[in-house]
Design a protein around this nucleic acid. Structure first.
Lengths: 186, 186
DNA sequence: GACCAAATGAACAGATCGGTACACCTTAGC
DNA sequence: GCTAAGGTGTACCGATCTGTTCATTTGGTC
């Protein structure tokens, strides 16, 4: 069975776009890094934008399954799981390959609200919010929508701060803040 | 007295890079938008990167003076000023030209920690942290370093959330969270 | 008006960009 | 072995990229 070139390409694209930036990465660079011919690339994807969309979709799936699994391993109660989200962030920040969030990068480089790439980042963020809201509701906390939004913003803040690199423990600090907000909503 | 072309260029560059992205903006686009010749540009700046650095510096000065002035107009006590930071964010988010934060964008498009542009964004963020820390200390709140970090992360989170556009009142929600953290540190 | 600094415009250089065309090769299934 | 699907390599296209050169124009001061 021949390896799936399309999947290889999307995986490589995801890594390269993330590390190097979307506009700053040309298709020739992807050819060089992936070993997949440009002809094959354009056979599978009509344009660079379509490839980016596929890479973002893959990133969303991989990150979501990894973080959900880690959270479930770290805690079982919804309230503890809300805090475990920050431990999982911490693990992510400590990875050598961490370079902020691919969706933040994409929404920044494609800032027009009607651009498909921007729209996909918004959808991904909506899905994150829904995930946090589900846990907040399961934990029977007050003002669930607002609290979910605040917790998500702490996560965003931790990601950005971790990328700037000027705090020793962004995830830990955000977790302490999250705990205070959760306690206040109990 | 001839108008200062260099300053005009930096102002225009700041606006165009911010709206369009750094890599996605070519020097020819800047020529078209500013009406300043490419020759003049390269007379004042050795490279595109140097122009970007100057634009970031200008943005830092303008944003800092504007926000400091607005905060001082909105509140006089340090504790109230910490909360007023979020009202000022709100004003900023509501501007037609809001497109996330120029320093977040720059750090994202130039993610290498040794790149001068990335370094300048880190310095700007350090200055923001010091500003928040000064207010936290003046308000005599507990754990000032950690609290300043948390408040800054809420600001980061609000900026990112405002840019994704999937919350009606990111600054207001972040302000409520900030108030809870400040109350808990009183 | 003369002079000088600042600025312009036009053309250029080499490189890269996203994307196309086509002959040819490789792999997998029958 | 044959065939079709998948993939490659090479060259190409028109456009754009950052940056350079140089003759000319413009603006300000005396």
């Amino acid at each position: 069975m021949r390896k799936n070139k399309r999947d290889e390409l999307v995986q490589q694209a995801m890594e390269t776009f993330y590390r190097n930036g979307f506009h700053a990465t040309g298709m020739d660079m992807l050819v060089a890094e992936s070993g997949i011919s440009k002809t094959s690339m354009y056979k599978h994807f009509k344009s660079k934008d379509e490839l980016i969309l596929a890479a973002l979709k893959l990133r969303e799936e991989q990150f979501h399954s990894w973080s959900a699994q880690r959270v479930a391993e770290l805690a079982s109660e919804p309230r503890d799981q809300l805090l475990a989200l920050f431990d999982v962030l911490d693990e992510w920040f400590k990875e050598d390959t961490f370079k902020s969030c691919m969706f933040i990068k994409a929404s920044s480089e494609y800032p027009e609200p009607d651009h498909p790439i921007h729209q996909q980042t918004v959808e991904q963020r909506n899905a994150m919010y829904e995930g946090v809201l589900t846990l907040v509701e399961a934990a029977a906390l007050k003002n669930p929508e607002a609290l979910a939004r605040q917790l998500l913003m702490l996560q965003e803040g931790a990601i950005i701060t971790a990328h700037f690199g000027n705090s020793k423990d962004p995830a830990g600090e955000a977790k302490i803040a999250a705990k205070a907000l959760i306690d206040a909503a109990s």
